[in-house]
Amino acid sequence: MDHSAHDGRPAGAALTRLAISATLHCLTGCAIGEVLGMVIGTALGWSDVQTIVLAVALAFVFGYSFTIGPVMRSGLSLRAAVPVALAADTISITVMEVVDNAIMLLVPGAMEAGLDSWLFWGALAFALAVAFVVTVPVNRWLIGRGKGHAVVHQFHGGHGSDHEAGSTHGGEHTRRAHG
């Protein structure tokens, strides 16, 4: 395995694995918010713009909460955890949301399809999959420069061992990158 690093940062295959893991984390929060927003907006008969605004807002809420919770469990207050989550996830969530919503708008009829339509669910699954593929290199680049999800890992590295933190978010990623 390639665990080479400069300045204590992962490189090579370790960096790629960390970026994939960080992007899966982002995808989970984004997908929950995105699906919930699309379902609510579609069920209420909202316009494409209203539905997308709700879906994006919920994607950010869920995405940030998936970082804030573990960071707080490792000892940080909510007031201190929020900036960590903003630094860790904003670019990743933004890229993912731009890509998946653009695809939903580009697939003919996807936004107008009902919740019982294979077109709606197929387009949404495809959009999220493409967003994942596009976001992995973005996260790899950010983490390699000590940005994005690396902010969470630096926090965990500076405040006790991964095992003490009890965080599946930061601890899992850090162990993969360094152990």
Rank of each mutant, 00 (worst) to 15 (best):
M1H: 15
S4I: 13
S4M: 13
P10R: 03
A11Y: 05
G12R: 14
A13F: 15
A14S: 11
A14R: 04
L18I: 14
L18K: 03
A19I: 01
S21C: 06
A22M: 10
T23E: 08
L24R: 15
L27R: 06
T28V: 06
G29C: 06
C30A: 09
I32F: 13
V35T: 12
L36N: 00
V39N: 04
I40Y: 08
T42S: 05
A43P: 04
L44R: 10
Q50N: 05
T51A: 10
I52P: 01
A57W: 09
A59N: 08
V61L: 10
Y64N: 04
S65Q: 15
F66V: 12
F66G: 10
T67I: 15
G69I: 13
V71A: 01
M72A: 08
M72I: 14
M72R: 14
S74Y: 10
L76Q: 03
R79F: 07
A80L: 13
A80I: 09
A80S: 15
A81H: 10
V82Q: 07
A85T: 05
A85N: 13
A87F: 07
A88W: 04
A88H: 06
I91P: 03
I91K: 07
I91A: 12
S92L: 01
M96D: 07
V98A: 08
V99Q: 02
V99R: 05
V99P: 08
L105W: 09
L105C: 09
L106T: 11
G109Y: 11
A110H: 02
A110F: 05
A110D: 08
M111F: 04
M111D: 02
E112R: 11
D116K: 06
S117P: 05
W121T: 13
A127C: 09
L128P: 02
A129S: 14
A129K: 11
A129D: 14
V130I: 15
V130C: 09
V138W: 02
N139H: 04
R140I: 03
G148M: 00
A150Q: 07
V152R: 04
H153S: 07
Q154D: 15
F155G: 00
H156L: 15
D162P: 07
T168W: 03
G170V: 03
G171P: 08
E172T: 15
R176L: 12
